[in-house]
Amino acid sequence: MELIIDITLLTFLGLTALAINRIDKLFCIIMLSGIYSLLCASLFVSMDAVDVAFTEAAVGTGIATVLLLSTIGATDTQQRSAPQRPLFALLVVCATGAILVYGTMDMPAFGDPDAPIHHHVAPRYLEMSQQEVGSDNIVTSILSSYRGFDTLGETVVIFTAGLSVVGLIGFRGMQKFGDRQRAAGITQDDMGKHLVLRIVIKMFIPLILLFALYVQFHGDFGPGGGFQAGVIFASGFIFYTLMFGLDAAMRVVSPRTLSYIAALGVLTYGGVGITTLLMGGNFLDYNVLRPDPLQGQHLGIFLIELGVGTTVFSIMVLIFFAFSSRKGLRQ
């Protein structure tokens, strides 16, 4: 039964990818890539990766689609050139694919419990996580405790990406944006007419933020954690911006504040590492934070998840602000 679901979803994924290749209207392509992400998320659930599915659903269908849409809003909505040298490309792709398929012949069968990957470090994580880290969700315990170094790196990468986006396109014309709108006769945002939408969104935004907090603090026991929570929290703000306009959103939280929050998140993460060093442990060894190692782990995971959450949230909102200020410039 599981295999049937798996194969169906994979086939749909393949078809969506082919459609993305064929269609030349960028809007349709972006919608299809949203569908592709949702299919991916369902596939991840069927393969037991609930945390990953959660992230893919929030990031792939939410943030990525919004960013792509605001880019085509500021540039072009139609692909104008025909594919270049398609036959040659097809040949290259087929040859590469054939080599890769040949490579899979030596791989262990799908779901094989005897595959080497399941006999290296994974059994230790599964068996010892509860005694050593004390969190039910092993993904969280690996993410923030066993492999805290990796996650610190990823957080810094996200921070850097946010900085690059702001550095590249920035908020040029930001101050003039309001004037420009008034000059163009757009006193209230176009969306202002949608009474039903406004009311429902006003109702939903607190719920979304509350849900994000739940995801943030419930990561020890169920699927969730800083990454997902940050993205969901950001999507609440993006919702608000789409409905009430960029100016209103920037009055709620300004880009300057957001960049401070982002830096604060990374600092929290690094700071926990330095603190553990100063208290006589290794870098990001939470056991020394409290007299009881399990409590120390709990505190450490709480703090660094908070750091990850705030960084992801503020970087996502910053990137979105930068992109939508672009769209305002063009009007």
């Binding site: 992230t55 792939g60 943030i63 990525a64 990468v157 996200i158 990454f227």
Partner: peptide, 12 residues
Amino acid sequence: LTAIVVGVATTA
């Protein structure tokens, strides 16, 4: 999980 979030940041 981390690669997905990093992926969207680099796409941005």
